[in-house]
């Protein structure tokens, strides 16, 4: 019997651990009520990407189907597209020089949002959002741009009621404290492509951006009247953007066009009141439309004036070669109606 003792003890030990399984408990109604479908967070950790490099060994990434005015085929042949960490030296140092895109606490997020909470009543809204923005310290809330403003009262649409509100007079500063991405989480992104006209490599163009962030951007999609409707928030911050052209061999490059501290904050569409739609007509042409705000109430115009979607573009410094062209600002651009339609040539 003694020799079975260890086995007996072992078995009793095993069985005695079973009560732990009995810890599974029923959730009561109030606890179940707290369970909520939330989003899916996505973070790219230590990420670097490079495509189209080493054309000599058959790597190609081509965009074709375009013709020039003489009817010759024009091919955009991408010889490098990259996403890397800071200091990529215009795409020379990509693999092994990674970047984190998104932060654990501020990830890229995919979520089905309750439309009632964001002014799209009774709809489930699909949302893809980039890392959130903080409230700015020296700028307006959730904007990189510190403004000097002035109060204006004017009509928002020809022939319609006037509305009052603050409008941007000038840009005083760039407030990067609104970015939830840290300096080390800003990417280098660039593309080199060759222009091939009628199978002859004609020119090489390059664009290299460093310190890129898209914090606060989002795409919202929902269905209304058998149609897909969207609202788009596009925020883009680039510390340094350099564009230049070279000859077909990539040599004898022209002067750099250099933009420093480029800020784009663009909102297209305003909930259900101003939907953004993409349609294809029966003749095969497409139409992009940002809904008209004509014939709305005065209360709507007042709201649109102060809270409505708008686009601000700011470039701290524009350089062409050694020439400094100073800064450029497009502020308070509000779209009342936009319709763009393609036509066959």
């Amino acid at each position: 019997m003694t020799k079975y003792l260890p086995l007996t003890v072992l078995l009793s030990g095993l069985f005695s651990s079973f009560p732990a399984l009995a810890e599974l408990q029923l959730l009561d109604d109030s606890a179940l009520g707290n369970v909520e479908g939330e989003g899916i967070g996505l973070v790219l950790e230590d990420f670097a990407f490079e495509a189209g490099e080493d054309v000599a060994n058959g790597n190609r990434l081509d965009i074709s189907g375009i013709t020039n005015k003489d009817g010759d085929d024009v091919v955009l042949s991408i010889s490098q597209f990259y996403i890397a960490g800071a200091g990529s030296n215009q795409g020379a140092d990509v693999i092994g020089n990674p970047v984190n895109l998104g932060r654990l606490l501020y990830p890229y997020n995919i979520e089905l949002v309750d439309g009632d909470e964001i002014g799209i009543d009774g709809r489930a809204v699909f949302e893809f959002a980039s890392p959130a923005r903080f409230t700015g310290s020296s700028s307006k809330a959730y904007s990189l741009l510190g403004y000097n403003t002035e109060s204006r009262t004017e009509s928002r649409f020809p022939g319609q009621a006037t509305a009052s509100g603050e409008r941007i007079d000038s840009i005083s500063a760039i407030d990067t404290s609104v970015l939830s991405s840290r300096d080390s989480e800003l990417a280098d992104i660039g593309v080199r492509f060759d222009l091939e006209v009628d199978s002859v490599r004609a020119q090489s163009l390059q664009a290299h951006a460093s310190g890129v962030a898209v914090d606060g951007s989002s795409l919202r999609l929902w269905g209304a009247d058998n149609q897909m409707v969207s609202n788009i928030n596009l925020n883009l911050y680039i510390q340094d953007l350099t564009v230049f052209a070279c000859d077909a061999d990539g040599n004898n490059c022209g002067a750099d066009v250099n933009l420093q501290n480029f800020v784009l904050e663009s909102q297209l569409g305003y909930g259900e009141e101003q939907p953004v739609t993409f349609e294809v007509e029966a003749d095969g042409n497409f139409t992009v439309e940002v809904g008209s705000i004509e014939g709305k109430t005065t209360a709507f115009y007042n709201d649109f004036y102060t809270q409505g979607p708008r686009t601000d573009i700011y470039i701290d410094k524009v350089m062409v070669g050694d020439a400094d062209f100073g800064s450029a600002t497009v502020a308070n651009l509000q779209i009342q109606y936009l319709r763009a339609t393609s036509r066959d040539l």
Partner: peptide
């Protein structure tokens, strides 16, 4: 509108981390 052709190799590195957000 346009045609995309890809041939050859794209290099990449890193991890994609996927997790629920909020308090599910």
């Amino acid at each position: 509108i346009f045609t995309l052709n890809i041939n050859g190799q794209a290099n990449l590195q890193g991890n994609l981390l996927v997790y629920p957000t909020g308090t599910p």
